[in-house]
Design a protein around this nucleic acid. Structure first.
Lengths: 322, 322
DNA sequence: CTGAAAGCGCTTACAG
DNA sequence: CTGAAAGCGCTTACAG
């Protein structure tokens, strides 16, 4: 049986209040009592029970982080950053990988309701009734979930625009766009818009394959893309697996990159795990994670926060452009 | 202010015991009271407070999962599997990415001591005083941490042996071994031993570069490897980043793979994220995760468990062997 | 079947 | 400075 605070009090010959005071420091406790308590704690190998502390203080010191999946370059990196950042605030991270199941996403709302966690960061590709979020401290990534849920995102529109402009600078005349449409309204949709705008501004024709994502279908999409538009000299690929499939499909279709075909991928987080060194838009993952945690902390502490926070992506030049 | 169980009891005109009974089901409650309670719960939008429940039941329903880092193909996949498996047992996963810092690893032992989590799965590359583990429900991966800590691993020795034999079958006469030595005693060391044994058994010479891992140094190691042993026709690379660096270095050194040089990598989990399709030993990540969770659950429930559990790896044939 | 009470292990006013 | 007491919100014997 683990020692409790009253065991310590008894052993040290003081009241439990005094033990609590030395435990939490700062409070004034006479030196001799202090010593006695410390000795007793050591002797009994006392560890404060955080279940009791939490109930008393109505606070867990835990946030939930919900992602669709861990085994994905963007999310994996995001998780690392969030965990490190939360730790700085004295919070732990409860991980929930929904594996794209809406039920698992809903369960986490219950968890907040039951006070298992103090707040949550949501990265979701599902729709949820927005009222469900309203009473809880939640921060979202790339998605506007409800009026009351602040969100963090990157400059999808501007970054895509810059990437397309870069392709044009490098001599591309016929640029295609391949992507998988998110199932839900999301900032990611701005990427296609930026492409369209760029094409219009330069008087260039649009070549788009952008369909609703069914995980694993990217290969087929990519094949279709290069069949439909055989003579492209530039490609913008939105998203990591799309980019990878597009790259393979292009090579297989006999294109030589970057000589005949230049390619830029949005989300370069995967290049570190792969052998490829693609020219890509790199999302500011660490900054997004830091903002998400910081803003969540503010929400937990009842402050009002910015509804939308945008961080700037950067264009990394690899060897898939001239 | 959130409604509590006594608010519900009052509103429904019953005792709190009765509310608790309908809450937890199974118990016999007369139908009219049942209805009244349910109505009251809905009316007050009641959510049971899990802090109180946990304190009362002395159980969190949370396990900690400690890994060196999330953003790594093996760990990312392992995390996904553990999380899903824990969920089946009604447990949540508290993630702790130590980022290789011993202090963060120690903090988690404190957490268990303070009863923040009910148990933990440890994937660590640090040494810890083994007594520290003895009082807690802990399961380790690939490491023997203490007499009282069961561990899960894969058949490092046999799988490496099979891989080397395969290289020999495919005609390799001069096979090298490149790896990064773990900082601590670990099952991973068996890979080098298997290589050495295979070489001896076949009367072949050993060509080994296996140094202590400093993250990021793999590139230098790989260059050194191919400088020292220029005319190898087979390579066994232990570990994901080693394999990747070795592959790049080989290509850069003008080798054509698999024509002049065949290569097998231990830990094929990264091939999905990379464009490469390497011949590799694939660790049974999902099974390891399942066993880890299952055994941890048994330990939490006070059962005695096997000290060592081994799962079998498989050799995946890619295009880096003939 | 059901209500009143005890107790999980803390923290924090409240007296002294 | 310090001890005794109340209370955080539950669950579970215990009577009835």
């Amino acid at each position: 049986m683990a020692a409790t605070i009253s065991d310590v009090a008894k052993c040290a010959g003081v009241g439990i209040g005094t033990v609590s005071r030395v435990l939490n420091g700062g409070k004034s406790v006479k030196d001799d009592k202090q010593q006695a308590v410390m000795r007793a704690m050591r002797e009994l190998n006392y560890k404060p029970n955080s279940m009791a502390k939490r109930l008393r203080e109505q606070k867990n010191g835990v946030i939930a982080l919900m992602v669709p999946v861990v085994n994905h370059p963007f999310f994996a990196q995001f998780i690392d950053c969030v965990d490190q950042e939360a730790d700085k605030f004295g919070y732990s991270t409860l991980l929930v990988a929904s594996q794209q199941h809406a039920e698992r996403e809903n369960k986490i709302l219950d968890r907040i309701g039951r006070r298992e966690v103090d707040g949550a960061i949501f990265v979701t590709h599902h729709n949820h009734a927005s009222e469900r979020f309203d009473s809880y401290p939640i921060v979202s990534v790339d998605r506007h979930l409800s009026e009351n849920v602040p969100y963090i995102t990157s400059d999808n529109y501007e970054a895509t625009k810059r990437a397309i402009e870069y392709l044009i600078e490098r001599g591309c005349k016929k640029i295609g766009y391949i992507g998988t449409k998110p199932l839900v309204e999301s900032e990611v949709l701005l990427r296609e818009k930026a492409y369209r705008d760029a094409m219009r501004e330069h008087g260039m024709t649009e070549y788009i394959v952008n369909e609703v994502a069914v995980h694993g279908d990217e290969t087929k999409l990519a094949d279709k893309f290069f069949e439909s538009f055989a003579d492209l000299d530039g490609v913008f690929a939105s998203g990591y697996s799309t980019a990878q499939c597009a790259y393979k499909a292009a090579v297989q279709a006999g294109k030589s990159i970057p000589e005949n075909l230049q390619m830029i991928a949005y989300d370069g987080s995967f290049t570190q795990w792969s052998g490829l060194s693609m020219t890509c838009v790199q999302q500011p993952i660490e900054q997004m994670a830091k903002s998400a945690v910081k803003i969540l902390m503010e929400r937990i502490n009842g402050k009002t926060v910015a509804a939308r926070t945008v961080h700037e992506s950067s264009l990394i030049i690899g060897n898939t452009t001239k």
